[in-house]
Amino acid sequence: EGALGYVREFTRHSSDVLSNLNELRLRGILTDVTLLVGGQPLRAHKAVLIACSGFFYSIFRGRAGVGVDVLSLPGGPEARGFAPLLDFMYTSRLRLSPATAPAVLAAATYLQMDHVVQACHRFIQASYEP
């Protein structure tokens, strides 16, 4: 008893978990919600959505979110703004271009992903500088 405890920290663990979750998403394993974005169906895991988005947190945290397995986002983001955010949630990489940044910004605002909103503003700002 009282032996000194040693911790082995696997520093890649969080990115390896996320990479496996993305593989599960791509193969439709344990995905529990279909998002209808601009009419396009996107499968995802509620747990990942709720962890990454304040909007989904407010929807799925309550009992009301339990039975929801198809969610349309009327008046919500268009697919070309939403899809890069879903990929970001599962990869930590956000693809931006001058053409897509406004749509991604609008979608991130809608999804209450404030840190991504700020990054989009920085990107748009920088793309205007000479």
């Binding site: 709720i50 962890a51 990454c52 988005s53 304040g54 947190y57 949630m89 930590s92 990489r93 693809r95 209450q112 992903m113 404030d114 840190h115 991504v116 990054a119």
Partner: peptide, 22 residues
């Protein structure tokens, strides 16, 4: 990746923090 011009590293927080149970 096709067509990626540059990758910029963002060191700050990326997503919201789920409040700890009060």
């Amino acid at each position: 990746h096709e067509g990626v011009v540059a990758t910029v590293k963002e060191a700050g927080r990326s997503i919201h923090e789920i409040p700890r149970e009060e």
